[in-house]
Design a protein around this nucleic acid. Structure first.
Length: 574
DNA sequence: GCCGTTTTCGGCCCGACTGTTTTCAGTCG
């Protein structure tokens, strides 16, 4: 079983225990363990073989034994027992908005509802309001939430969709009178790869007016609720958005709170308690009720004796301990990116000419651009043969001549790693290139041993400088190839082969925890836009977000180097 | 069920909002 599947088992266990009415802290333990497994930069199967499961955050004696059982037998007696006791469809019912464990249990026990369709039918039939404590309004809300669930499919959307929508709302809020500051907080500010809903925060001393204006925005489809300090709405785009409004003097704690993550916040509040303080979005309070107000986040963390922690690190993945020990990394910034290693043109599946892509890269402020079109093995995109590659080289030289010193073009290729691990060009052709990036696009479902060996063969090929989108995953689509990540990272480090962080929001591959593990293993990383058209150079920020979530400093990221250093690096690789 | 520079047992964050309520339970973040 893979990390995601194991984590899912423990999340399901937590859901089932909640419906059962189990003690909340036992439930939280399963959720913490699930999160710890998801945050793991390594394959849990490798960790299991090393008998190191207890080192995973949130895994103790009992959960270690359960993982061991899962690994050995692919089953878990305890889980099977729970599923016999509680209908599995209730897990989906629990994920309907405004339905929590208490209501799910009552729907089941009192109305014999065990699936979302059954719940929908009962709501339409007016049967939910028969329950004590439920009325027509609750019934209508639940029905609306089921509708919303259908529209949004899996609940979360790509950051590439969410961020532009949020930016538009932020711009609109900033124009309102009496608004002193606006931030998109939540998982968006942490640059998570998917976003459940938008969390917006405004600083103002007139919250009522701001909330009134917000709920009247043209993007708003309907208002879900509006109180004195917060409102939540459904947007026409299908996203849910909520806005908190706090006075400027309290903006620091409010922003910190709204940014999360929840686990990070809980941890901070525990720290506050240790200092005899209570922390909420409104500020700190000491034991006699005296307040400490924080207009900015720096003061929030300083009050706890910590340096400010960048939002991208706030996942309760050891960042608080690192901050306390002065071990926080100095994270790479978008402004430090100086070049691009991955771009396509009309020679294969790009939308623009080489000249147009070069021009766009120059305008994006880049010092160098490596053209890396596909190779012949990828027939459907008209991959380059060695001859067409040589023709492309001539065009590249001509464009370079026109550009002069304003941008340095390098000739590379995104070479197919074939199903047997060999590359799609002969050695002489590979040697003629300035940079060889190797990628897997086909046969992604090969068994673990085979596809791992395939990637290892590519890494060990002396011509290969970089591996493109190493795991082949798509953020909301395709599962990563079944790779043994540990050995691959070690081989890349050994051979000095850089690993791509593909910045396209549909890929984001490597992902954050793998990027972190890669740098810890000694690999270099490259943040690449995989540009297929001029606008794609703007995708870089998503890749930088992943890199920062992966704790990467600038020195871990190859594109922070200038063109001379890159040429030296390539030359050193032969 | 996890965890320990105050603890190996007894803790484990804090508040807003809604709906159905005469004081609060449930859900959410």
């Amino acid at each position: 079983m893979r990390n995601r599947e194991v984590a899912q088992v423990f999340d399901d266990i937590a859901d089932l225990l909640e419906i059962k009415g189990e003690m909340i802290y036992r439930i939280l333990s399963y959720r913490r363990a699930a999160e710890g497994i998801r945050s793991l930069g390594r394959d849990i199967r490798e960790v299991w073989k090393e008998h190191a499961l207890r080192e995973i955050s949130g895994v103790g004696e009992a959960i270690e034994a359960k993982i061991d059982e899962l690994m050995r037998t692919k089953k878990l007696e305890f889980f099977e027992g729970l599923r016999k006791e509680i209908p599995a469809g209730l897990i989906d019912v629990l994920h309907v908005g405004d339905v929590g464990p208490k209501r799910a249990a009552r729907f089941w026990r009192e109305l014999d509802i065990t699936t979302v369709p059954a719940l929908e039918k009962a709501a339409r039939g007016g049967r939910l309001r028969e329950l004590s404590g439920m009325g027509a309004k609750s019934e209508a809300r639940i029905l609306q939430n089921i509708e919303a669930m259908k529209r949004r499919e899996r609940g979360r959307i790509s950051i590439g969709v969410a961020l532009p929508i949020a930016e538009q709302l932020v711009a609109r809020l900033k124009q309102l009178p009496g608004v002193e500051a606006v931030e998109a907080a939540g998982s968006l500010r942490r640059w998570r790869e998917t976003v459940g809903d938008l969390d917006l925060l405004a600083a103002s001393d007139a919250p009522g007016e701001v909330l009134q204006a917000f709920t009247s925005f043209p993007e708003v489809e309907r208002v879900l609720g509006r109180g004195e300090t917060k409102a939540s709405v459904d947007l026409h785009s299908g996203l849910k958005a909520q806005l908190w409004v706090h006075p400027p003097a309290r903006f620091g704690t409010a922003l910190q709170y709204a940014t999360g993550s929840q686990a990070h916040n809980v941890h901070l509040r525990e720290l506050a308690q240790n200092r005899g303080l209570s922390l909420s979005e409104h500020g700190f309070k000491d034991s006699v009720g005296r307040e400490i107000l924080c207009p900015d986040e720096v003061k929030v963390y300083a009050t706890l004796g910590l340096p400010w922690i960048p939002p991208e690190l706030r996942e309760d993945r050891d960042e608080i301990a690192a901050a306390a020990a002065g071990r926080l990394p100095r994270l790479v910034e978008e402004s430090q990116i100086r070049g691009e290693f991955h771009a396509h043109t009309q020679w294969t599946d790009g939308a623009s000419t080489l000249q147009e892509m070069a021009e766009a890269a120059r305008q994006a402020g880049l010092e160098y651009l490596v053209i890396t079109d596909h190779t012949q093995g990828l027939g459907m995109v008209n991959g380059l043969t060695p001859e067409r590659l040589r023709e492309q080289r001539r065009e590249l030289d001509q464009v370079q001549a026109r550009l002069g010193d304003s941008l340095r073009l390098l000739h590379g290729a995104e070479v197919e790693i074939l199903a047997d691990g060999s590359l799609d060009f002969d050695d002489r052709t590979l040697a003629s290139l300035d940079l060889v990036a190797a990628s897997i696009h086909t046969s992604l479902r090969q068994p673990r041993e085979k596809i791992t060996a395939r990637l290892l063969a590519a890494i060990r090929n002396p011509h290969v400088d970089m591996i493109g989108h190493p795991t082949g995953r798509l953020v909301l689509g395709r599962e990563a190839a079944d790779l043994e990540v540990g050995p691959i990272l070690e081989a890349a480090a050994d051979h000095g082969v850089a690993l791509e962080i593909n910045a396209h929001p549909e890929r984001l591959d490597l992902k954050d925890v793998h990027a972190r593990q890669a740098w810890a293993t000694g690999c270099l990383l490259a943040i690449n836009c995989d540009a297929h058209k001029p606008e794609d150079f703007a995708l870089r920020r998503y890749g930088v977000g992943v890199a920062r979530r992966g704790w990467l400093p600038a020195e871990a990221v190859l594109n922070t180097r200038g063109v001379d250093q890159i040429l030296t690096w390539l030359h050193g690789r032969g």
